[in-house]
Design a protein around this nucleic acid. Structure first.
Lengths: 116, 116
DNA sequence: ACAAGTACGGCTGAATTTATCCGTACCGGG
DNA sequence: CCCGGTACGGATAAATTCAGCCGTACTTGT
């Protein structure tokens, strides 16, 4: 889209397949939020004010392209857009839960180390 | 080290804590390799030939700084260096297993989508 | 008419990560 | 002596992601 990759992606291991899809400053949060019922672009942005709308838009679009989210535009007026997890996207939830849990479990040590 | 961050890191959620440590093109692979018994810099590089030695060095150093790996320099001659998982690093293994598993489980669909 | 809310996206530059090039230092073998 | 293997790291370029600014379009309410 915005940028054409010049270096081919490594798909040789599962780790990289996951990263190719989830890597992006807000992607995991977006997936999690949609899973939690926050489905509309405006809501999502209010939910993570530190992210710029532009970046969220872009990352949402990539998630749709990667088949993780689906996007529905309702033709009512006023406009309304909603994102949903696809079935593939839903399979990510346990993995994301797992890493978020790890982060919370080690928050104290991590904050010390990272802030150093 | 090489670069001083100008934008503060968000530590507000577990997801970001995890990413702060594991994000890096080869970090998850490095952690996994060390866990699998590939402990020496040279071995690691031969194990992932697509990564440049310089980048591996840098990412290994960051993993050490973040308390995920420990580094031992043996004073024998010739030189010998070995990395090990710290106890914190060891707690990452289940999470990494989980995401690698997800990648493998969905390899077929993902390859189709990403290559598109 | 005007402000505010919804959503989309081009353009541009800053921030950050990854890659390349090269040089250091030590050791051992041919 | 020269080559190759071990390991480390500065300087810099290339690649990529993230952020900010602004403009479009439509609708609702004042």
């Amino acid at each position: 889209m915005t940028y054409q990759k010049k270096i081919p992606v490594s798909l040789d291991c599962g780790l990289h397949l996951f990263m190719e899809v989830v890597n992006g400053k807000w992607k995991a949060n977006l997936i999690w939020s949609v899973y939690s019922g926050i489905k509309r672009p405006g809501e999502l942005q209010r939910n993570m004010p530190k992210a710029s709308r532009r970046v969220l838009d872009t990352q949402l679009k990539q998630l749709v392209q990667h088949g993780i989210l689906s996007k529905t535009t309702y033709d009512e007026l006023p406009f309304k857009v909603e994102y949903e997890l696809t079935s593939l996207g839903a399979t990510l939830i346990p993995a994301i839960t797992c890493i978020a849990q790890w982060g919370e479990d080690h928050r104290l040590e991590l904050e010390k180390i990272i802030t150093a």
